[in-house]
Each structure stands twice: as C-alpha cells, then as structure tokens.
Design a protein around this nucleic acid. Sequence first.
DNA 1: CTGAAAGCGCTTACAG
DNA 2: CTGAAAGCGCTTACAG
Lengths: 349, 349
Amino acid sequence: MAARKPSIQDIARAAGVGVGTVSRVLNERPNVAEETRAKVERVMQRLGYRPTFAARHMRTGRSQLFGFLTDQVTTTPFAHELIKGAQARARQADRMLMVIDADGDDRVREQAVANLIERGVEGIIYAAMFHHEVHVPAALHEVPTVLVDCYAVGRTFASVVPDEVRGGREATERLLADGHRRIGMVTNDVLATGYPAAVGRLEGYKEALAAAGVPFDEALLREGTGNADSGYGWAHDLLDADDPPTAFFFGTDRMAMGAYFAFAERGLTVPDDVSVVGFDDQHYIADALRPALTTIALPHAAMGRWAVDHLLTAPWGDDRPPLQRRLPCPIVERGSVGPVPTRAEGEEA
Amino acid sequence: MAARKPSIQDIARAAGVGVGTVSRVLNERPNVAEETRAKVERVMQRLGYRPTFAARHMRTGRSQLFGFLTDQVTTTPFAHELIKGAQARARQADRMLMVIDADGDDRVREQAVANLIERGVEGIIYAAMFHHEVHVPAALHEVPTVLVDCYAVGRTFASVVPDEVRGGREATERLLADGHRRIGMVTNDVLATGYPAAVGRLEGYKEALAAAGVPFDEALLREGTGNADSGYGWAHDLLDADDPPTAFFFGTDRMAMGAYFAFAERGLTVPDDVSVVGFDDQHYIADALRPALTTIALPHAAMGRWAVDHLLTAPWGDDRPPLQRRLPCPIVERGSVGPVPTRAEGEEA
DNA sequence: CTGAAAGCGCTTACAG
DNA sequence: CTGAAAGCGCTTACAG
C-alpha cells in the first residue's frame, strides 16, 4: 500500500499470467477463459489496481478528451449550463472535458489552445456567452472545432447558435395572441454592433408584426444596452409617449427587471396594466420577479450537447462549408402576459 | 503536413542530433551549445513540432492536472467564479483543470473520481455551491483533496469556506452604523438544517447586536428559504408587526429582491423609508435592483484560488488535523442603506 | 485461450 | 556539450 501503485506487470506476476492477458481482462475482450478472468480480477481487486490512463493514451493515441474554451464570460451565469450540457453528452461517450476560462487575454487563449493540442484533445469547443462574431486562435484549425453561441470571421468553423429571429418572433407572437397591437420593443444592444443577439431578435419582432398585419411603428422601438437601468429608462420613455404601448418585449430579462421598477413607480401592475416578455430565461431574475417573467429561453445546455455531439459524429475535414446549426429558443410561460387592459375611467385619450 | 505529426525522433533525425539533445532544447536545459539549440529550434519550427504531453506525463509521472468536481450546482451562478479563481491560480503553476459537473448522482461522482485518478490528477477540488456538510466519494482519500464551500463528515479533508459569521456581523454592523436599532433578519434557510450558511449569518447578526448593546428581539427574526417569494412574504409580515423594523438583513440577495416588491406595494422607498442589506452579491440581482443593493460578497474566486494553492503547496499526508480556512466576505456598498427615517406625520405610534 | 515482444514519445542518467 | 540506451505502463499483432 505504501509502495508505488501496482502496474499491469505487477498484476500479471501476482496472477501468474502474461500482461497481455491482464490487458484483455481489463478491456473486457472476449478471448479469455472464465477462470483466468476471475483470477486476474481477484488479484486486481486485492492489489487495488487502477489503470494508468496516460499509458493507454500513448499507446492507443486516443485522449478521450475534449477542450472547452470560454470567451468573455465575465459575469454571465450561462457558462455553467453550457458546460453541463457539453459534459452530459461527453460522459455518454466516455470522454472528459478540459475547461479553460480564456476570458480576456488573447495570449492566454493561444497558449490554452496549444496546451490542449499537446494534450491530444480530440476536439475543441469554443464558447461565447452571447451570439456574436469572434476571432479565434489560428491553431484551432489543427483540431476539430465547434463554436458555440458565436461564429468566426469567414465562418470557417462549424457552429451552433440560438435562433434569435425565431425567438424574437415567438416573444412577439405571445403578446399578439393576447390582443396587444402596440408592443414596445427594446433591443438588447445597440443595433450598430450588428450582433445577431440584437439584430435578430428585432427581426423576429418585425416578422411577427408583419404576419399579424400590424404595421411596424418606429416610435415603439428603443435600442437598449441589456442592463436593468436601460430597461428602466426606456420603459418610462415609451410610456411617456402618445399612444403608449400596452405590452413590452425586452431583449434581456435584466431590462425587463428594470422595467418592473418603472411600472411600479407609475402604479402600473403587471400583467393587468401592462404585459411583458423578456429574453434569456435567467432563472434568478425571471422567477424572482413579481409576477414571474414570461421569457424566451436560450438553449445553452442544448448547444453544449450539440457541440460535443458534432465533434463526436462529424468526420473531420468533411463538413465544408462548415455547418451553422440554429437551435430553437423556447418560450417559458410564467405570469407577465395578460390581455390588453380595457380603457377605464381616468384614461387620457 | 498530411503525414502523422512529427515526434522528437523526427526532429532529431532532421537536425542531425540525438533525441536527448532535442529534449534538452525543448526543456530549456542549460547544457546545449547555442548553435545546436538554434538549429534544433529551426527544425522544430519548420516541421511544426508539438510535444506530446502524454509521453511526457508517462515518463515524468507528472500530469500537471487537477480535478474540479462540482456538487449540486443546479441553478447557481457561482460555479463559474469558483472555476475562474481556481484556474487563474492553476495557470500560474502551469497546471490544467479537468472540470466535472457531478451534480446529482452519487454513481456519477464515484466514477468521476475514479477517472480523475486514472488520469493521474495531482489533486482534486470538490466544490459545493453553498456552505454545508457533504458526503464525498471514498476514493478521494487516495489523492490530495480540498473541499470548497463545504466540509466532510468527520472533517477529514482540508477545506475553504466563507466566514459566514463575520459576514453576518458586517451586514448588521452596517445597518447599526446608520442608526438602525430595529433590524429585521430573515435567514437564508431553515435553521434546523444546521447549515453554516443559515446558522452562521444569524450568529453574526446576534454578535453585532450584542456588541452594540442592542438586545436581540425574537420578534424580528424569520426563517426564510432563500428565494424571492420568501423575502417578499416575510418583509410584509415583519412590516405588519407592532414596532416594525426600520432595516432588514436578508440571508440572500434573492430574498432582498422579493422584499423590494413588498416595499413597493406599500409605497415604501429604499433607502429613505427602509434600509436593506443582502448576502451573496449576485451581480445580476444586486446591480439591477433600484436602488442597487448593498450586500455581502461570497468569496468564490478567492476560495477557488486558495484551493488550488493549498493543493500546490501543502505536502500531502501532512496536514492533520486538516485545515479549515475561513475567508472573509467583504461588504459591497451600493445604495440600499440610509439613516433611520424620522417619524413623520401619519405615523401610527 | 495465452504469452512474449514490440513500440507509442518522451526524459534521464551514463558515458564519452 | 552530446549521443545511445533504458524505461514509464499500457495495447496489439503474432505465434503457439
């Protein structure tokens, strides 16, 4: 016990067989006499044998390892969902995940990719925390790679992203279904960024409006920043307008949260006086709001799963042009949407 | 290029030297003629050589790898901060982190530990998402281990946890400093659980009160569940009492968030009418509240860093009794604490 | 069904 | 300063 850990040699010697036989038992190969197998297993048990993975890796050339690189995570709580989904799929295939938070520094990222390659990873997942274009380390081309919630300049890698447009459409449709026609929309970022997370959700909003025969009204649109202050400010602003919206679609749950405070200040109740749909499905916010927020979920776990699955099943060097897979963003119904309020006494119009 | 990747042998042959020399260059050993070094480096460059880590690992016996196991993460956004801190320290020491979300299933956890050991990890970090007692896989005893935000039955492992008591004390002191004497406290879990996260914060509250000469009043205490509804309900309840509190200390930011809604319903403004301190420093909540929430930060990144550092520096088998390190929980001032309101017209008393 | 041998790609004494 | 050789712990044909 105090000595060094037993190798396959030690087991072979102790069991009076060859190392090849021990290896066969270890790998549950067929051609082993039942008696021999039992004997070897007993010895392994007794000596507390554990195979050394590094030796196996070196001999077979298979690392059974994937790299998982996160980009610009900072404060988002999404990373874990992504890792969780990726790992669940990896475990099914008996693979492990080397996770690297490559937040920030480009040098760190390059180094991380180099380390991963030296460790023989069978593939790398490069995950961003919101849907945008990224510049990835060049060495990523040396190994199968899939991008998550982002895409590379030139789209030279397979990627999996949320279907922002469809998400925006569903959010808007939900509001339309309850009779709303004047629906305020606050984007989750400045449109000039070109981020699909901003542009796409708005596009979905417009599509839904068009499909319902409701003309798009520029006066109902605001470009937000994603954070609570922005939602608070634009909610007030929109409500101050002539013919204000009866419902709001916010590009993030955080903005919806800010708006709740604006509504409270005006004595407006959700969803009786005003309806709201968010985007992201950040549980800690959406569940904690009163009433809880109806929102669009980002498919983080599903994207993580898809990424690993793609690495596992897509033959490398084969998918040109690289695939971009869009995953649906399901709506999560909670309590923030209701019918259009009937104009009661005290109305201004 | 299309051939298999070059090994140290290929480099040696191409450079007309022995493999030992290439190895020396690779590892930046002293005894190499400058000219030889340059030649070898040129060849490595030209052939795109990358060392194979598995071979190095096998030969040296050092995996330069730590395992990171998370326990019961579910929805908390803390995991990432922890990983980030651990990884930052690991990178300094040229180590990598194998992250495993062992949420839920005990079998998965056992298997994960076995896999990690087979991969030759130099240590394992087992992290919980809130401070409580855990049952860990027995195999953890085979390898240096440190527990984060939890401790094992029998305290047989080193661990690093938040100083809950001190955090509770600081929260309360902050309120006392602004003149509050009637401070409502809502614990973040039922006290019967015995969780340090619940019991400790309350203890700190009592200590601060005692130090300030303010008698503890049971009527001001409620046992919460940690979520927003709980904060909302108890805030109303406490405010309905005779001689209600002028300030609140909530065991979680989520409860504080729920309370904000209760205050709004009563037309109470934070911090003019009522002061609030939370616990956890969940940015997405604390920053998004209006006004932003003053709260106590859990030292997740610091705990992650400490854990890796301990693994790196503590000689194994040497620290008996195992160390339990308590890390401070700094207060984060935002805008939810103000002076005691002067009793104005309309008061009931 | 089973054993002996080769070899994966490194590092490390050991000679020279 | 440098080369040849051994060996880390496995798996995989190859004989028998």
